[in-house]
Write a protein that binds this DNA or RNA. Structure first.
Lengths: 260, 260
DNA sequence: CGTCCGCTTGAAACCCTTCAAGTTTCGTGG
DNA sequence: CCACGAAACTTGAAGGGTTTCAAGCGGACG
C-alpha cells in the first residue's frame, strides 16, 4: 500500500460524528500531506512507516517542551494546541501561536536542534508524528523535502511579522477582530465550515496573552462586538454575523497560517 | 581563483578608513559567506560568478519592493536598510526590521515568489546580490544550499516571535532597551566593536514605528536612559554605559538576528 | 545664511490595565 | 440527579502609561 492510501484510510477514524466540536482534519487537508505526497512521487513508499498516527494527547499535556532536543515534527489531527515561550526566569509565559487540525508544530526547531517553546494541548487531542532523524537519513531526496520545510517556514515568518504589526500598532478591537477572522479562515482552509459558527478551544486568558491584552479587555471587546451585532456568542461558540464590517473595523487582510 | 578568495580580496575595498561610521562588513562575517563556502566545499567554484558584488545604493533607494517578483537574495555590505510592510490601502507602513552589514535580505520571498516588503537604504549603502534563479539551476546540490536557507529562516522565525512578545507586552523602556542591546550585539557579532559606542543609522521615527511607539515616547525614553546614566547620547551616536543595568531593566536575553 | 527636517518638550486626553467583587459555567462527587 | 466548589468569565471603578496635539529648538544642507 502506498503512503497516501495507508494514510487516507484513517481519515474518518475518531469521533467526529459524536463530538462535532472537537474537529478532526481529513488527511488531504493536513500540512503533513504535502510531505508524504512528495515522497510518494519520488517512489519512496517507506515514509509512512516512520509516521506515527493518531497519538492521543490529554488536555494540558505537552507535546514537547522548550529547550528539549528536536525529535520530530507534528501535525494536529484532532483538537488544538498552543505554543508557549518562556519569557524569563520568573516563569512568565507568552503564547506565540494556536494550532488547529491540519497545522504543523515544531518545524522551527530544525537546525537549531531544540524546540523554542512548549506545545500544550488545549483539549483532548491527537497528533501525527514524523520523526525527523529518520527523514534525514533519506539523504539524497532531502532537497525536495526541504523545499516543503522552507515553504512552511516562510509562511511562518510572514505570519509572525503580521502578528508583530497587529500587537504593536492596533487597538484591542482590531486585534480581536483579526484574531477571530484568522481563526475562521484557517478552519475553512482545512475543510471546516464556519458559517454556523465555530468553537474557541482556548481560554480568554490565552487569547489575551496571545494578543498582548488583559483578559478583561478581551471580555469587554467581545461584548462590544456582540452589541454591534458583528458576532454572536454563546459560551465558547462564536459566529461571525457581519464579516465585511468586522473586516473593515479590523483592517484585516488574509494571512498565511502558521504551520502550513 | 576560488570563490572565497575572489570574495576576500574585496573585503577592504570602500571607504571604511575615511568614513568609520558607515560600517562595512568583512566577507568572512557576512551571511552570504556560509552559502559560498558551502559551494566551495562541494567543488563548485562557479557560484561567485553569479554573485554581483558591491552594488551601490543611494540613501532612500529601494533594493526591492513588496509584491515584486523574487529575483534574488541580498547581503548588506556597507550601510544599512529597513524593511517596510504595507499595512493597507491607505499607504500606511510598518517597519518590520533593520539590516546591518553582514545581514541577509529577501530570503523569505523564496517559494512565495514575491517579496513581502520594501527594502529601503537608510544611508548610502552597498549590497551583494545572489540571483536566485541561477542558484536553483545548480539542481542536485540544492539540499545543502537549502539547509542554509532553512537556518536563516528559522532564525528569522525566532526573532519575529521575540519581537511580537516585546512589542505586545513590554513597556517603552523595555522595548527601547532591548532594541539598543540587540543592535549592539548584532554589530559585535559582525566584527564591529561597540565599546566606544555606535551610530543609529535610522530615524527616531523609524525606531518608534518598529517598536510600536510614538516618536515622542522614543525621545522621552532615551532622555530617561541618559538621565539614569545607562547610555550616553550625542546626536545619533549611542554608547551603552551600563549594559548590566540596561539588561535587567529590559529583561533582555540574546536573540538570533534577522537575516542570519 | 536661511530653510527644512528631525528632534525635544509640555499638557491634555484616551485607551488599556489593574484591582476588586460578583456571576456564570463546568466538572466532580455525594 | 442535584449540590458543591473551583475555575472561568463578567462588570465596575480607579489609576497610569502612552498617544496625540501643539509649539519650540537645533543642526544639516543647499
Amino acid at each position: 500500500m502506498n503512503p497516501l492510501e495507508s494514510l487516507k484510510k484513517n481519515q474518518s477514524d475518531g469521533d467526529v460524528a459524536e463530538c462535532p466540536d472537537r474537529m478532526e482534519v481529513a488527511c488531504e487537508q493536513c500540512g503533513l500531506f504535502g510531505f508524504l505526497r512528495l515522497f510518494e512521487q519520488m517512489g519512496i513508499a517507506s515514509l509512512s512507516q516512520f509516521l506515527t498516527r493518531q497519538i492521543p494527547m490529554a488536555k494540558g499535556a505537552r507535546l514537547f517542551e522548550a529547550e528539549q532536543p528536536f525529535h520530530g515534527i507534528y501535525a494536529v489531527k484532532k483538537g488544538s494546541f498552543k505554543s508557549c515561550a518562556l519569557l524569563d526566569a520568573s516563569g512568565e509565559q507568552q503564547i506565540t501561536g494556536f494550532y488547529l487540525p491540519g497545522e504543523l508544530l515544531g518545524l522551527d526547531a530544525i537546525r537549531v536542534g531544540v524546540y523554542g517553546y512548549h506545545a500544550v494541548a488545549l483539549e483532548a487531542s491527537s497528533v501525527c508524528q514524523l520523526p525527523f532523524m529518520q527523514v534525514e537519513e533519506l539523504g539524497e531526496h532531502m532537497a525536495a523535502f526541504q523545499e516543503q520545510v522552507i515553504q512552511v517556514l516562510v509562511d511562518q515568518v510572514r505570519h509572525d511579522q503580521r502578528q508583530t504589526l497587529l500587537v504593536g500598532r492596533r487597538s484591542a478591537e482590531e486585534r480581536l477582530g483579526a484574531f477571530l477572522l484568522n481563526l475562521s479562515e484557517r478552519l475553512e482552509r482545512h475543510g471546516f465550515g464556519t458559517g454556523e459558527g465555530f468553537r474557541l478551544p482556548m481560554l480568554q486568558n490565552d487569547i489575551a496573552n496571545y494578543l498582548g491584552l488583559s483578559m478583561e479587555t478581551v471580555s469587554r471587546t467581545l461584548r462590544s462586538f456582540r452589541e454591534q451585532e458583528l458576532v454572536s456568542l454563546q459560551g465558547k461558540w462564536v459566529r461571525i454575523l457581519n464579516p465585511t464590517c468586522l473586516r473593515s473595523i479590523t483592517q484585516y487582510c488574509a494571512t498565511p497560517l502558521p504551520g502550513g
